[in-house]
Design a protein around this nucleic acid. Structure first.
Length: 203
DNA sequence: GACAAGATTGACT
DNA sequence: GTCAATCTTGTCC
C-alpha cells in the first residue's frame, strides 16, 4: 500500500511506555500522532483527557462495568462506546492497568488524496468540506471506520487493524488547551487539548 | 421490569 | 440557537 498524502515520514508504532502516564499528561503528546485503521489514516488534532475514579466526568468514575471494562485494561488499548444510542466514540487507554484513565479522540485530519477519501465522503453526504469529515468524536469514528467491534484493540500491537503511530517528524504545532466539551460535571478541568489554528478541530 | 441519562450530530428556525 | 433522533447501560423499585 502506498502511503497517503500528508505523511511526513515512515510510520513507527507509538511505544506503550508513552501512554502509561496520567491521561492529562499523555493527551497533548497524542496531538500530531497518526491513527491508522485499516487503509484509512488520520492525524490527531484534538483530544480530551478523562481520569479514573476521581474524575466525575469519566466513565470510570462509578467503577468498572461491562461497558467500560476496556478502560481498566492496559495502556494502549482502544476503548469504544456508543454515545446517545447513535454514535461511536473512541478513546486511547492510558495510565496504569485498572486505573480507568483514557484520552478521548475528538478530531483528526484525514490524510490522503481526494481520491483516497472518496469512500469516506460517500458515507457522509452531509459533510461538504474535507475539514467536516472527522471534526467530532462520532464523525471521527465513522470516517476512520471505527466500530464497537474495535473495542479492546491494542493500538501498540504491530498486527492490529488499528494502530497509533509517529510519522517520524518532530511536532511543529502549538498546543492549545481549554475545558472539556459536552459534559455536565467536573467542567472546571482544562483537559481538552487541540492543535492551535488547525481547521480540523471540532469547535 | 421500568425508567432516566448520555464524552453527539444534523436539521431546522 | 434550539431540538429531536435513538438505544444501550445502569439504577431503582
Amino acid at each position: 500500500m502506498t502511503p497517503p498524502d500528508g505523511l511526513r515520514g515512515r510510520l513507527e508504532p507509538l511505544p506503550r511506555s508513552q501512554l502509561e502516564a496520567d491521561a492529562p499528561r499523555v493527551a497533548p503528546g497524542l496531538l500530531g500522532c497518526v491513527l491508522r485503521v485499516g487503509d484509512r489514516v488520520g492525524r490527531i488534532v484534538e483530544v480530551e483527557a478523562y481520569g479514573g475514579a476521581d474524575d466525575a466526568a469519566s466513565h470510570a468514575h462509578r467503577g468498572r462495568t461491562g461497558r467500560n471494562a476496556t478502560m481498566f485494561g492496559r495502556a494502549g488499548l482502544l476503548y469504544c462506546y456508543r454515545s446517545y444510542g447513535i454514535h461511536t466514540c473512541a478513546n486511547v487507554v492510558t495510565g496504569a492497568e485498572c486505573e480507568g484513565q483514557a484520552v478521548l479522540l475528538r478530531a483528526v485530519e484525514l490524510l490522503g488524496s481526494d481520491e483516497d477519501l472518496a469512500p469516506v465522503r460517500a458515507d457522509r453526504p452531509a459533510a461538504r468540506r474535507r475539514v467536516d469529515l472527522a471534526n467530532g468524536p462520532g464523525k471521527l469514528c465513522e470516517a476512520l471506520g471505527i466500530t464497537l467491534d474495535d473495542d479492546g484493540t491494542d493500538l501498540c500491537g504491530p498486527g492490529s487493524r488499528a494502530t497509533l503511530c509517529y510519522d517520524g517528524a518532530a511536532p511543529r504545532h502549538r498546543v492549545a488547551r481549554g475545558p472539556r466539551v459536552g459534559i455536565s460535571v467536573a467542567t472546571g478541568r482544562p483537559w481538552r487539548f487541540w492543535v492551535e489554528g488547525s481547521p480540523y478541530v471540532s469547535r
